[in-house]
Amino acid sequence: MSVASSENIVVRSLSQIGDCGLFLLRMIAAIPRSMRHYRETIRQLWFVGAMSLIIIMVCGLFVGMVLGLQLYDVLSIFGGTSATGTVVAIAIYRELGPVVTALLFAGRAGTSVTAEIGLMRATDQIAAMEMMAVDPIAYVAVPRFLAGVIAMPLLACVFCALGIFGGHLVGVSWLGIDNGTFWSNMTATVEVVKDVINGVLWKSIVFGIVVSLIAVFQGYTTPPTSEGVAYATTRTVVASSIAILALDFVLTAFLM
């Protein structure tokens, strides 16, 4: 019995991943058709991107501040507090920036996209679009997907900038590290390609693709009931989080 059910889970997960991949192909095929709905993409960019700014900025600031505080404490053991800026920047660029932004993005924007599409399906809005000769993949799925892919790296950059600001606030303004030392050590060590391009941009673009795909797919394929939408929302968060952290490891290994 347990063997059968665990096999069942494996088969179900595999078929979900397969369906998800096929759905991605359908969306890619629909991208040219969705170009005429570019206004909808802009509107979704507002909802998933601009509306997530506040939470991203606040979290970025606090992550930077707590990093400044912790690293100052540890580095002071070695008399190396002048390296606080460097370590804050590297920690945020390479890991915390893209990963925390993606997790927040999955929780804030991913769930709302899943719930919204799921409810649109439950209330026949998707079917109504089909009936109005509007392709719901091109009108509903692709704009949300593209908006997520575009918004994620931008949000990650904002997160990182606020994180550096938070680290500076704690390190320089409160703990008294010299302002020039903070910046010069950072600029001497942090590199554009390795830290900003590979660390922040590539990772966050990949995370954006994965989180948006999972969110749209879950919403689009959920059973059109309130229970189904609730499960789909949960699955979006769970699957996104696992995918983000697993991919983070793979990407780090590749981009190092």
């Binding site: 649109m120 209330t123 026949d124 809005q125 109504a128």
Partner: peptide, 15 residues
């Protein structure tokens, strides 16, 4: 379909 109107049971207005 552009020449067919369809009235859904639950109206299906875009929210």
């Amino acid at each position: 379909r552009e020449r067919i109107g369809y009235l859904f049971q639950n109206s299906a207005l875009l929210t």
